[in-house]
């Protein structure tokens, strides 16, 4: 069955959601991933949106932004941003989704600027809630296009902390997050247009977990700015099932997010 790279990304994202989990849903593709998970393997998951919303049913119409009217209609709670990010700060949100413009091998994300901080070559929009989700969720799932200039050895600016960097006090990874005082979490998965990475918590390094059908380890390496490390069970990404594709296309019939 034919599918687009973005449809596969949505499927990979949805598979990160376990049934019953509380999920902080980010902008764009995660909006669709939440709807897909809800209607397939995770009917009891709950979505939390940074505008100040909690809902346990997918919106009745396609969402362009989380603040669209259909997302508020039928919500379990409409409240403030501080209240919902506060739940995450208190450790109550299992999974958070974010995107990024640049990421490095330790899962640090940049959505602020390319080039020098004082005199940026490209000024990007900034954190939004991204840095909060990366800091405070129990697990972090990152979704972004796979291009060599985006997957870099080191990002120009750490907007959303991943596993930091090795320094004189110790390694990157969970140990780094503890050193700087982050309460929990860290990247669990990076989903790109070519591949899926997981992370080694001891070193904080990204591991190639799977490469998408039609791609290969060689192509992923070509498009990645650091020498790949493979997960022991690295394999081809499991393609979308017909049921997953049917649900995605029902949610997004014109391919607004997936074409």
């Amino acid at each position: 069955m034919e599918y687009t790279p973005r449809e596969l990304m949505v499927v990979c994202a949805a598979r990160q959601i376990r049934d019953g989990e509380r999920v902080f849903v980010g902008m764009r593709l995660p909006l669709l991933a939440f709807a897909l998970a809800k209607r397939t393997h995770a009917p009891n998951c709950v979505g939390i949106f940074e505008t100040g919303l909690i809902r346990d049913t997918p919106a009745r119409e396609l969402l362009y932004t989380m603040g669209d009217a259909p997302n508020i209609c039928g919500a379990l709670w409409a409240t403030s941003t501080i209240n919902v990010i506060g739940l995450m700060a208190a450790g109550e949100i299992e999974l958070g989704f974010i995107g990024g413009a640049e990421i490095d091998r330790y899962g640090n994300l940049n959505t602020s600027l390319i080039g020098d901080w004082q005199q940026p070559r490209v000024r990007l929009p900034g954190s939004g809630g991204g840095a909060d989700i990366a800091s405070l969720a129990q697990r972090l799932a990152i979704i972004m296009p796979h291009e060599r200039h985006r997957l870099r050895e080191r990002v120009d600016f750490v907007t959303s902390p991943g596993y930091g960097y090795p320094d004189e006090q110790g390694p990157a990874g969970v140990a780094w997050r503890q050193r700087v005082g982050l309460p929990r979490g860290g990247p669990a998965v990076l989903i790109t247009t070519l591949a899926v990475f997981t992370f080694d918590p001891a070193t904080g390094e990204a591991l190639l977990q799977s490469y998408h059908p039609g791609s290969s380890i060689e192509q992923v390496q070509e498009e990645t700015g650091w020498p790949l490390r493979l997960a022991p069970d690295c394999a081809e990404t499991v393609p979308p099932t017909p049921e997953e594709l049917r649900v995605i296309r029902e949610c997004d019939p014109h391919g607004v997010w997936t074409s």
Partner: peptide, 13 residues
């Protein structure tokens, strides 16, 4: 006080 953003360049800059 918060623990959000610790370790990030946002916190530093």
């Amino acid at each position: 006080p918060t623990r959000s953003l610790l370790g990030s360049d946002l916190a530093r800059k």
